[in-house]
Write a protein that binds this DNA or RNA. Structure first.
Lengths: 235, 235
DNA sequence: ACAAAAGTTTAGACGCATATAATTTCCCGA
DNA sequence: TCGGGAAATTATATGCGTCTAAACTTTTGT
């Protein structure tokens, strides 16, 4: 008897974690490697192998031994339901309970396994069906549809181009706090005014009229900032 | 590595469940029996015995073999923190997210293991530090202080006496829905106008001026309604 | 006062998710 | 094409919380 299963999905907490991690590691190119999953979930590789075996037997993912795994449609749907929960929770905590954007990830990471679909939908209603979370990530619909954004890292943008900062990972609180001190939030428009080679820093100009300013951003941080390219500034 | 522990308390989900269950079963008279805990938690009696052994080794409760268990001060404090979480959650879900009072228990039962102390305090602030949950149960303070109410079952009140319905268990959704259809909610004042012997029904008069009415309430339900006795109606 | 009934504990096992150590497979460079 | 290194898998074990079956107390009824 017993065994703690999540409401709505009916999967164990671990299963939910694996599916979400695999979803977030997926690329169109290659299957997701065992070691990558182990890294994200902070478990040993053999633990991943054994969970992967179970999940593939449940039809949630396809295991190509020694190559990696891919989500099946069923697995991807389950993963997207977890992503929806996570992002709605982050949005709710930020908008309704005064959390800062750097502290919601951890709280949502725990709550996503405990909330019912009903609670998530009530939160979504209270928020007016938000489309993006506080970090700019799109929120999947209840049906598992997600808007695929075509964004590129700030570090890849050419000097002179204009763009808008749209999204950043929710996983690094220190990084998020730093962005907050810079005044960079999703929606901030900027112009790339400089960029050093060899993974060097990027310089951007941004800020509302009057308080416009230039900011130097290190390569690592610039790679983490996902941006939409806007039309070139007309010289 | 691993093992899912709750934030803030640092106890496992099961430990939290046991402590809360034992707290709610405690009486000044006798220790809490193994079978009572097994009943509430829906586990087999031997499972209780083995958990009880662990918890008493951790100093959370005292085990009197074949007699039962009692919470130690540390165990009671931990239990009261869970009770606080549960009741704040129920109040928040009802007040801020439109839940009915019959459906919050189940949701809170899961969430209480996942929320951080910070989230609970933010909810408490948003609610204005409520003193009672939607079912009339007092909410312990952060420090584990709880207001001991001196209430008696409606089934024990004498004919002719006046009282105020104050509290009912949150565990039976059907019972709660029925009370809602009767218009009986915590705070409702009434007069006992009749009572049958041999665990028979109780008749009460209640309702605001104009819509006052009499209602027959079966013994079982009447036993569940905790009431404060008011002064006798002056004849 | 004692035997049956009721309740509790011990004994032994399982499922889940994890771990470490040893083995196997894959891939790439010489 | 073959050997070495990186990665994955198998084999085996552990901790937690649960279970059933059997043995043991305590309570109860006559």
């Amino acid at each position: 008897m017993s065994m703690h299963r999540s409401p709505s999905t009916g999967f164990s907490r671990s299963t939910e974690d694996y599916l979400k991690a695999i979803y977030e590691l997926e690329t169109p190119e290659a299957p997701v490697q065992t070691s990558a999953i182990a890294g994200v979930l902070e478990v040993a590789p053999p633990s991943v192998t054994s969970m992967v075996k179970k999940l593939s037997e449940s039809g949630l993912l396809q295991h190509l031994p020694y190559r990696g795994v891919q989500l099946t449609p069923a697995g991807r749907l389950a993963a997207l339901r977890m992503v929806r929960r996570h992002r709605i929770l982050e949005t709710y905590l930020t908008s309704k309970l005064g959390y800062d954007w750097d502290s919601v990830h951890e709280e949502a990471e725990r709550l996503e396994h405990a909330v019912s679909d009903e609670l998530i939908e009530r939160m979504a209603v209270a928020l007016g069906y938000p489309e993006f979370d506080p970090h700019g990530a799109p929120i999947p619909t209840r049906e598992g549809m997600i808007e695929e954004l075509d964004l590129l890292p700030l570090s890849d943008m050419t000097v002179g181009s204009c763009g808008e900062f749209r999204m950043v990972s929710d996983r690094d609180p220190a990084q998020l706090r730093f962005l907050a001190t810079l005044g960079l939030r999703p929606g901030t428009a900027f112009t790339v005014v400089g960029r050093q080679p060899f993974r060097g820093p990027v310089t951007v100009r941004f800020g509302g009229p009057g308080r416009e300013r230039e900011q130097i951003i290190g390569f690592e941080l610039a790679s983490a900032l996902r941006c939409a390219a806007l039309d070139e500034e007309v010289g």
